[in-house]
Design a binder for these strands. Sequence first.
DNA 1: GCCTGTGAAGCTATTCACAGCT
DNA 2: AGCTGTGAATAGCTTCACAGGC
Lengths: 205, 205
Amino acid sequence: MASISVRSVRRLSLYRRFLQESQAAGKRHLFSHDIAATTGASPAQVRRDLMEVSGHGSPRQGYNVAELIDALSRFLDAGTPQPVILVGLGNLGRAVLAYFAGRHPKLRITLTFDIDPAKTGRLLNGCPCHCADKIPELCPAHGITMAILTVPAAEAQPVADRLVSAGIRGIINFAPVTLRVPPGVFVDTMDFACSLETVAFFLRD
Amino acid sequence: MASISVRSVRRLSLYRRFLQESQAAGKRHLFSHDIAATTGASPAQVRRDLMEVSGHGSPRQGYNVAELIDALSRFLDAGTPQPVILVGLGNLGRAVLAYFAGRHPKLRITLTFDIDPAKTGRLLNGCPCHCADKIPELCPAHGITMAILTVPAAEAQPVADRLVSAGIRGIINFAPVTLRVPPGVFVDTMDFACSLETVAFFLRD
DNA sequence: GCCTGTGAAGCTATTCACAGCT
DNA sequence: AGCTGTGAATAGCTTCACAGGC
């Protein structure tokens, strides 16, 4: 497989979500410019991205929605569902947990961790919360490779280090910190302070 | 001013935050490779980005931390503090509100909005919550141009439309939806479902 | 010696433009 | 006629490499 860029994969994920919404709304066929319009890409880019998943469209009617969703899912999803952990059950952690609850068939938060004894041992959104000390034991035991990190900024790097040594190789980081991780570990930081500053900058003309 | 890319501005914002932390830790001088190492950029990129703000470093000691923070702030910040509104006080909205409370000298959430009467009329983190109906009245009255959108996915586009007609020109969107906005309005979507799928993809080899 | 600042090169991503199809 | 799929062209971003300075 020719190596595909992070940005293309991200767009493919976006296209799939839009296609699923369209399907729910009763659409059977869509053109590249339809997908482009509501996902913010150009029609040419949609077609080029879709080359990677080789879901063929017809010139007459465009893309068959159901077929394309299947092709995208085969491309994007692993065969088996992937368990994900969430570390840090503050406001943000609970919000993210609630957001993901039961939403994605292939990516489910199956365990959560916190250091606060008041939170451990309970269920939140049907999901057990363990003491963060258990990370090195439970992650390998459950074959978990992905984590969502919603701990305070000061904790983020040390917790990330522990996650990595527990076998985690993908992290969605909500702390306003650039994590240092070894090669082969993927991190995506949701840095909204940075986003806000960036948007603010471009409002000044 | 030569036009600068969104990505450069984002990195500059990241550099500044790192410099502020370094300053708090007692650092007076830093080299481009120090900044690069902890922000995930290359040293050459740091230097190139910093060309834009023309904060001059010396070959002997690198960059003077205090001077560079000043230069970055002059570049990134508007002269006066910028008020920001937050719309949608669910779990996520409250988490984001708590996160920003008092954190940024130039960007402050000054008003929040929700449609739930149980939430309106109260203070959250010292910030008054109004009924969403008041957006068209209050935003222009307070000269607000930026919004953080933490409403459910189905509400995001209609609310965004109302924000735009109330004069909002920058939106940080947390809903898993690509917003359609007129030219001149900046949107940054924090799409963590998408991020998680993308990270998951690259873990499969 | 080892840094910064920067032109130039190299690389990646996006768009163009058109052949081929229905 | 109007779409898809795709090679070619363009635009944009990142790194190289080195002159200049301490």
